[in-house]
């Protein structure tokens, strides 16, 4: 099973994400934002956290129009898995691969701390290693994590069980306490908290490792 991790100018969680995939048994290819194709046989694309293109215009806006994102969109259209974390979530919303938008935190402050998250659905390749309702701890590190969408979109996300994670204590003003959402086919996940930063016992809590193991488990069966 093979993962590709994209690097944009200003990405800073790309290596952490690659290591988290490797620890779960993935072969990892590193992909540059100007690449026009993904390596052959990629099962999952990781869009990492960071400050792509300096957050110019809007967080993730420039990266979402990078050449590699057309290849990521084709991969998603084929039913491929995509995981966007933090800035990667912002990139996926800007690219239209996930609904909604990430706005400035309601408190206007950059928030960098571990947060408790409720696993809102276990019905996805990413969250099947958790029980629905289980509380896990991942770090957050963002200035623009305030998830917003129009009321119809929010209602549809809830009705279709596409809210993947919610904050136990909302740190940023996100609508419905949303920390992460799934695409309609449940194969694209974007979330603000960082599972890849909670996946190595040498660095603290490891609640995030189960996401990478679960994804690897699905692919190993395939």
């Amino acid at each position: 099973m093979k993962a590709a991790v994209v690097t944009f100018p200003g990405s800073n969680c790309d290596r952490d994400l690659a290591v988290a995939f490797e620890r779960a048994g993935f072969d990892v290819a590193r992909v540059w934002h100007k690449d026009t194709d993904l390596p052959a046989g990629v099962d999952v694309v990781g869009i990492p956290g960071g400050f792509s293109h300096g957050d110019y215009l809007r967080c993730g806006a420039i990266a979402a129009r990078a050449p590699v994102m057309a290849a990521v969109a084709r991969h998603a259209d084929r039913g491929g898995f995509v995981l966007g974390i933090c800035n990667g979530f912002q990139v996926l919303t800007e690219a239209g691969l996930l609904p909604g938008a990430l706005m400035r935190n309601a408190g206007l402050k950059f928030i960098c701390k571990p947060v408790a998250l409720r696993v809102a659905t276990a019905d996805s390749a990413f969250t099947r290693g958790y029980a629905a309702g289980q509380v896990v701890t991942y770090p957050v590190a963002h200035h623009d994590g305030n998830y917003q969408a129009d009321p119809e979109t929010l209602a549809a996300l809830a009705a279709e069980d596409r809210i993947a994670f919610t904050y136990v204590e909302n740190p940023n003003g996100a609508a419905r306490d949303i920390a992460g959402v799934l695409s309609a086919n449940r194969r694209v996940l974007g979330l603000m908290p960082h599972p890849e930063r909670a996946a190595d016992p040498a660095l603290g809590p490891t609640d995030g490792a189960a996401m990478f193991r679960a994804l690897g488990g699905i692919l190993a069966q395939a």
Binding site: L57, R58, A61, R65, T93, E94, P99, G100, A101, M103, Q148, A149, D150
Partner: peptide
């Protein structure tokens, strides 16, 4: 439509 504004918000 394509870049300068995010018409979601």
């Amino acid at each position: 439509e394509r870049l300068l504004a995010n018409t979601v918000i």
